[in-house]
Write a protein that binds this DNA or RNA. Structure first.
Lengths: 346, 346
DNA sequence: TTGAAAGCGCTACCAC
DNA sequence: GTGGTAGCGCTTTCAA
């Protein structure tokens, strides 16, 4: 059964011509007798011939496969990015091979190794929150493997990047809270080795200073493992002698945990404390109150990552690492619309 | 750079031995001088040698790649299944190649073709809602390509399947609504060519007759395109002269649309109309009221699909298509907890 | 224990 | 226009 794999040799044999001719006919090179060509095509169809991409790859040293590494496939943000990558990929005749690092550095390394052994034509990677050692990525880059980092990136590596303007997104979020009357705005921060955490924190801090808002260490609580540590972090904020009147969370999962903790403690959102997240996970719009968030163009991130890869392989001469920064969009929903303490309507 | 690909030949040359010996050393075959072996291993490491899986595949006719086709990666159910497949796959030395059919039959065919050309060792497929022509899948099966269908399957094909007990899940959902006092239960049904739609509908119908509930055509409205047609379908139900007191939706996305329509029309869930979905999309638990739903073990579906594939390739002799039916679990949440018209506490 | 050589399916070079 | 042949990187006889 399985060994009944039809090859160009089978076609050649049946037609009493050479494999070279079959190969040419199949690929439609110009210098070939139209009749021969038609005969080959007919026979190929009759025999259910499908080209063996493995053999082609071995010859051409190109697999037309892109390796993708994400922390977790089942997170909506990542699956949407993957969807964007995939759609762009098929458009250009590529397939994608997906790995999940589960936020583990060693798994990430193993994933990369596996993909490289599979001789993928390029690597599209979103780093784990643990990743601080970039030597292997560096080595792969040195070996000439095209690589694009997205979302969680690293400036040490001279490779293309696709990110969103996290700083601006965070700034807008805080500006919005300020406009709505919040004056003591806390931040549930992410792990500090991630560029996204740092940028969002900085955007938050810059907004505070622009609006002359109180800036205090006790208002910034880190969630090193994101949502797993968000519960404790939120409690910590709520137990302050002088609790915040707004929380800006590093992402939606953290914001959701915060919302749960507040519900548990009978704190009303947004009246007691306003809440803003980041990413626009679909859950947010169905929560009550619906979660205000900073939307990232996830599908587009995937597409652009793929485009940067294509630029690199199609124009290798004029290639220079490019950093594409996509715009975020503040989605104001109910979790931040409140009457502030001074009675100003938000 | 890229062409600096290290091969066993490079190692052989450096060590002045033959490629066969290098190959043997690398794979740890027993009949080899430990010293030679060590020398090879050291050199391989020094040179950053990584085996070329493409070349291995061409020889062995095995790629250790599994092709996965799902309607849409970014739907939580599917990305969770994929996650299950992926985790099981790496455990057994496989990689996965993912395609999305976007619910289009022709895209699905193209995906399958691409995967077959890539010579994947097996196919894990969830059919589109359009798929009614199984001839290509049949052909692939005839050619001996191991194939497992999951979730949306087709009994015509003599291949392994992983599904959940949709009939039972639907039955339990309706039984629960009945227990909660609902007596006029409607169903937002899925496209009838999908096994899951048919099974859930049948479970609904069987429950109605077991509990002696009214069964009427006007209470069953089909959503041929799932959530896109759910809005109109819900309106249709609500405009009945005698509207239902509960709605059982074929899946969560449909249920969510129904909830939105009801909110729009100022119908209270669950007091006016109770609502139950299917699948357990994460959105459901954060809605207000939280959505009662029939949970499917999505991650496990992926794992089992991969296991069935492995059984088939590892024990090809004793292989017979197997149908694994996983249990669902009713998650009772607020959207179905109501005081019924007779004042019975639910 | 090791080496030489053939071949997996395909493409590309060089003849004719 | 077409055929012969070499070779991509690897494994696997068969000999030595």
């Amino acid at each position: 059964m399985k060994n009944s794999q039809v090859t160009i040799r089978d076609i050649a044999l049946k037609l009493n011509i050479s494999t070279s001719t079959v190969s040419r006919a199949l690929r439609g090179v110009p210098e070939i007798n139209p009749k021969t060509k038609q005969a080959v095509l007919d026979m190929a169809k009759a025999l259910h011939y499908e080209p063996n991409l493995i053999a082609q790859s071995l010859r051409s040293n190109k697999t037309h496969i892109i390796g993708v590494v994400v922390p977790e496939i089942a997170i909506h943000f990542f699956s949407t990015v993957i969807s964007g990558i995939q759609d762009k990929a098929v458009e250009y005749g590529y397939n994608i091979m997906i790995c999940q690092s589960n936020e583990s550095f060693s798994t990430e390394q193993a994933n990369l190794k596996a993909l490289v052994s599979s001789r993928v034509d390029g690597l599209l990677v979103c780093l784990t929150r643990e990743t601080t050692d970039y030597s292997f990525l560096h080595q792969l880059h040195e070996q000439g493997i095209p690589m694009v980092l997205f979302d969680r990136v690293c400036d040490e590596l001279p490779v293309s990047q696709v990110i969103v303007d996290d700083h601006d997104g965070a700034f807008q979020a805080v500006a919005h809270l300020f406009a709505n009357g919040c004056r003591r705005i806390a931040h549930l921060a992410g792990p500090s080795n991630l560029n996204i955490s740092r940028e969002r924190l900085q955007g938050y801090l810059d907004a505070l200073s622009v609006f002359n808002l109180e800036q205090s260490d006790e208002l910034i609580v880190s969630c090193p493992t994101m949502k797993e540590s968000a519960k404790a972090a939120t409690h910590q904020l709520l137990e302050l002698t002088n609790p915040p009147d707004a929380i800006f969370a590093v992402n939606d999962p953290v914001a959701i945990v915060a919302a749960e903790v507040m519900e548990e403690r009978n704190i009303k959102i947004p009246d007691d404390i306003a809440l803003v997240g980041f990413t626009n996970e679909p859950v947010g719009q169905h929560m009550k109150p619906a979660l205000t968030t900073v939307a990232q163009p996830s599908y587009e991130i995937g597409q652009v990552a793929m485009e940067l890869f294509l630029e690199q392989v199609n124009f290798p001469d004029k290639f220079k690492p490019k950093k594409r920064i996509l715009k975020t969009k503040l989605l104001v929903r109910d979790s931040s619309k409140h009457l502030n303490s001074k009675g100003v309507i938000s």
